[in-house]
């Protein structure tokens, strides 16, 4: 299982290609790519979004399901999905706490 990720051009925000073809700011909204066809379609969408100056340097990441939750396989991607492990008040992890409050 994979997802396509990138940074948004205008502000650098970490984004993933969402199910509806938009770029979303949380991994939970990412389009989970489970077939070669889906991967190819996502990559084409990535190239298009890059050309349209929405995002920079899209790439595929591996995902896994841990305790029912979708997680990146690589630690680097886990940190990208959440924020710095040393500053829980920053990055996406902080936003999630705010919205949950």
């Amino acid at each position: 299982m994979k997802a396509l990720t990138a940074n948004r051009l205008i502000d650098g925000e970490v984004v993933w290609l969402g199910r509806s073809g938009t770029w979303v700011e949380t991994l939970a909204g990412a389009w989970l790519l489970e077939t070669p066809e889906a991967v190819a379609e996502a990559e084409a969408a990535g190239a298009e979004a890059e050309a349209a100056r929405l995002i920079v340097e899209p790439y595929l990441i591996d995902l896994t399901r841990e305790d029912g939750e979708i997680q990146p396989v690589r630690f680097r991607e886990k940190i990208r999905a959440k924020g710095p492990t040393v500053r829980l008040d920053l990055g996406k992890q902080a936003r999630r706490e705010v919205s949950a409050a």
């Binding site: 502000d11 650098g12 970490v14 920079v56 990208r80």
Partner: peptide, 12 residues
């Protein structure tokens, strides 16, 4: 890069 701007994990 000539102006000190990198793209890092979370942001520029």
């Amino acid at each position: 890069l000539m102006n000190g701007v990198y793209l890092q994990l979370h942001a520029y």
